[in-house]
Design a protein around this nucleic acid. Sequence first.
DNA 1: GCCAACGTTGGC
DNA 2: GCCAACGTTGGC
Length: 141
Amino acid sequence: MAYWLFKSEPDVWSWTQQKAKGKAGEEWTGVRNYQARNNMRAMQLGDKGFFYHSNEGKEIVGIVEVCTLAHPDSTDLNWECVDIRALMDVPKPVTLADVKAKPELAKMSLVASMRLSVQPVTAQEWKIVCGMAGFKAKEIP
DNA sequence: GCCAACGTTGGC
DNA sequence: GCCAACGTTGGC
């Protein structure tokens, strides 16, 4: 099981909209970057990810799960995407400033590869961020 | 709204 | 295959 981070501008696609899609989930369309696409190709069913609001908020607001493997992006068949579904809110959003303030997270893609829109997250980073988000050790998704 | 970082494109 | 020009992302 791997962990990821999905960035979205709330103006374009927000966590509220994602949650409204429920268990069915929604295509993560619009990625036009090879590295981000390769990350999606590597995803397995059941992989989990953070849902991050860029621009407005600049914070991790929820937990999602990959529910469809990479397939052609319906908005441009030359590209690919996965489907993700919202699992739960984060008890307390984790802001970019929070992440930057943690020396242990200096290597996290969110800080180190700022512009990448679909990023890998290590198991350790996942744990730390979940802790910051208010999950108790036993509740970490 | 500005601009730095960085990916992509295209001329050579 | 190099690299300058250009476009886009996203923090500030």
